[in-house]
Design a protein around this nucleic acid. Structure first.
Lengths: 211, 211, 211, 211
DNA sequence: TATGAATGAGTGTTCATTCAT
DNA sequence: AATGAATGAACACTCATTCAT
């Protein structure tokens, strides 16, 4: 019993460290994050971080990998293959926006990783596997739409993916400088709703024959 | 003589510090940037940074402000008001993309500033002035296009601006994680050309009545 | 084994830091003291100073507070309440002189604190408590002496306290400039003895009816 | 004319530097004083300090020496030799107190110098000369008082001098810690008056046959 | 498994002083 | 005589990481 508890504690400790690290890395970037803060927030001894993850950088990698796996898993659960192409596309745009909005750490982590030239993500095999699946899924939607005559031909699935991500991601990650440049709070509920509609419109006009 | 003069030219020293700082901040972010590195690269004594700029943070602010003023100034020079609306819009999309591409420090600086919730940009009055000018210019293009019957009505100039920025910015800032997710080098010349075309297409379809 | 334990004894480390800091602060003042020197002398890592005390200034405060508590504790141990008033008074004058003489750091610390307008001492509640006790004790001696007819009436206990301190403190703290002004070594044993006698005489003539 | 003005400017600059330095050294001690602050307050270029005084330490020495010469000069002007011994003594006690009170920089400079073991004062010959004069003057008062039967015999003039200084100096230099220990503002006008009376009383009882 | 003490190499920042004009 | 730019050594403080138990 004692053993069992300890084992579970180990998992729980790991999970608490990951959660605390995600928050801290998202808030301050890789360089700005503090190991002390993570261990404190995780209510775990600092030594445990090194025990379970090896180093601050390895911990970042673990957090980042988990974040990517999470969004890809969530996308899979949408089962877009089972929807008509137009619905599938709109659902994807909505999902992408909503996921970024509800998981603001994700975009900050990705920004941090790009500052570091993706040197952590590079090491992850798992990411490559799920990415491929994801792209081919979007490619499948496009193909079905073209076949049904609803979508234009010649739309590159990679460009489309990037654009769907871009129009949501940029709005949210640059919300602070945006607030100054555009002199308005970009996070007001109405503003967020308007942006989602605008994004759906943008993508539909880009892809659909009859938008 | 010229050399001697340079050695004690305050403006030149300031400029060298700014240039070195821009590079270092862009590469490593505000937190990751090293004052030592900046002073070394600027061939200026570290003390001079504090003499002229006060602190690392104030130096960051100066660099960021200059970066924003630079892009806004370059945009003004396009004289888009003198072009027909379609041309003006395409020129803006091309310019935005090309500017980001040729000034990669800009996007990294902006990312860094957003990580810090724009607390430096907030203090700058100059930025607000040039931002207003810029937005009203884009608004003017839209209005002219609507008047001529070329553009759809009801396209919000702020949303449009954000979108034009987003589809270029995201592609470039996320090039490293993108390379892994999409398993290709997004910076190949053909890839860059293709992206620019795709972006022009995206915006035209979004704005024009007859794209 | 004992040695091993000492190496990781937090209390011992704290004590070593305090001792080294007392020396360094006394020698060079708050501003002139070097944290590196303190950590070196304490055979403690510099980081430990910040771990245990927070900052150089907080360390100074801790040292100062301890110094005040020490003299007040030593005074309490004299149990002057149990002595006849004359003896009590003379004992206090002797003690004060001897304490300053044997604890030269005390006077230098107090000087340093006064240069900084007592901003550290202000924060200490403990000091206020022991100070009150001390003053009321001296007040008690005076009262007993007046009651027995040995002491004059109307001698203010605060003024008396200050004077007892002053005539010892000044001599010792200004010993270096004094040596030049008076062209003699004020720290010769005979000189010290003579000063103590002079001080006792000064106070007795001030307080006693029949000195 | 231009030359004359320049010469006068040189003296004026020196004087401004000295005044600013006195203030700064008094406020922050030798170590804590900032050359930049001095040059700024003196409205003199920093280089001038080095031109006229050689170094920060030499400037401190000059300030200190001037301060000592000033108090000794002021004492000479009292012409105590012309007063009856009792009056002379009381006048000296009053003067010493008042001088410290009106020249608070003096006591802080002396404290600072003692922290540095009087290494600057040591170098000054002028100080030794005026000091001797001063002590012999006080010795003269004592002798006259003994001769007239008003003063006790055997009072050492050096001890007396030190005591007169001590009871004023200590009260003022330790006013900040004193305020906390004695829980009162020691600088209230009534408090200052009371202290002066107490000090006169202390010295008179110490020296006079019939106080 | 878990803890808290300990470390050394850096960080931004400051300072007295000197150089060039 | 006077100026302001420039310097290098030092300073308080921080951090990721390891040691001892």
């Amino acid at each position: 019993m004692a053993v069992k508890t300890k084992i579970r504690d180990a998992d729980a400790t790991k999970a608490r460290i990951m959660a605390a690290a995600k928050k801290e890395f998202a808030k301050n970037g890789l360089g700005g994050a503090r190991v002390d803060v993570i261990s404190e927030r995780a209510k775990a001894n600092k030594r445990m971080i090194y025990h379970y993850f090896g180093s601050k950088e390895d911990l970042f990698q673990a957090v980042l990998e988990a974040a990517y796996l999470d969004i890809r898993t969530a996308e899979q659960k949408l089962e877009l293959e089972d929807l008509p192409p137009r619905d599938a596309l709109e659902t994807l745009v909505r999902f992408t926006w909503t996921y970024y909005l509800k998981n603001p750490e994700f975009v900050t982590l990705v920004n941090s990783e790009n500052l570091h030239r993706a040197r952590h993500l590079k090491k992850s095999e798992a990411i490559k596997v799920v990415s491929r699946k994801f792209i081919s899924m979007v490619g499948g939607i496009l193909e079905r739409g073209v076949a049904s005559g609803e979508f234009r031909t010649g739309v590159d699935p990679v460009q489309l993916n990037i654009t769907i991500a871009a129009i949501g991601y940029y709005y949210l990650t640059n919300r602070y400088t945006g607030a100054i440049v555009y002199e308005q709070d970009l996070m007001r509920p109405e503003a967020l709703d308007a942006r989602l509609q605008f994004n759906i419109d943008t993508i539909m006009r880009l892809v659909c024959v009859d938008p």
